[in-house]
């Protein structure tokens, strides 16, 4: 993917641990342990009849070890592929809006129905655009909602109610 097709690994080293590798390694360790510990709740079984926990524990352990290796990498100069790529800060507000838009869709589409849910979801998503005014976002949302209704309800005839039970539909 394009992020780390950066300009090559030729630049110098950094003194402090390379933070992206530290984070990535930590994420792998946490997830690996979570799966391994979670897997230990299930029956491990034997080599003949492996239980439900056998494979998750083995893989979780492997991921933890790989995560440790990535952490070691962080202290030894970091991943050359991304070491010299300067990334802009994380767009927290925008990411929050997009995640909220998707979660809102999941939580309400059954109750509110497709129409109202889509309006709110697309409005939240449109607000995440750079330099956007609320009115503009609302117009975008209305347009996309109309398009989606035409495609999914009218053309594809998906069995999704336009208005759900919460609205007395």
């Amino acid at each position: 993917m394009s992020t780390h097709t950066g300009e090559g690994p030729d630049a110098g080293t950094r003194p402090a641990p390379f933070r992206p590798d530290l984070f990535a390694g930590a994420a792998f360790i946490v997830l690996g342990l979570a799966f391994a510990i979670g897997g230990a709740q299930y029956d491990v079984g034997s080599a003949l009849r492996m239980g439900s926990g056998y494979v998750p524990i083995a893989l979780g352990g492997t991921l933890t070890v790989l995560g440790l290796l990535v952490v070691v990498m962080a202290f030894r100069g970091g991943d050359p592929a991304i070491r010299d790529v300067v990334r802009p800060p994380v767009p927290w507000r925008r990411a929050g809006l997009l995640v909220a838009a998707i979660l809102f869709f999941g939580f309400t589409v059954g109750g509110l129905g497709l129409g109202p849910t889509l309006l709110v979801t697309t409005f939240l998503a449109a607000l995440a655009a750079p330099e956007v005014k609320p009115l503009r976002a609302a117009l975008t949302a209305a347009g996309i909602t109309a398009l989606c209704l035409v495609v999914f309800v009218a053309l594809l005839q998906l069995k999704l109610p336009l208005f759900g039970d919460w609205l007395g539909g």
Binding site: G113, A154, L155, Q157, K159
Partner: peptide
């Protein structure tokens, strides 16, 4: 025809 027909029946029930 069934693909292009506009059907609002899904919001029925009642």
């Amino acid at each position: 025809a069934c693909l292009t027909m506009l059907s609002l029946a899904a919001c029925g029930g009642g």
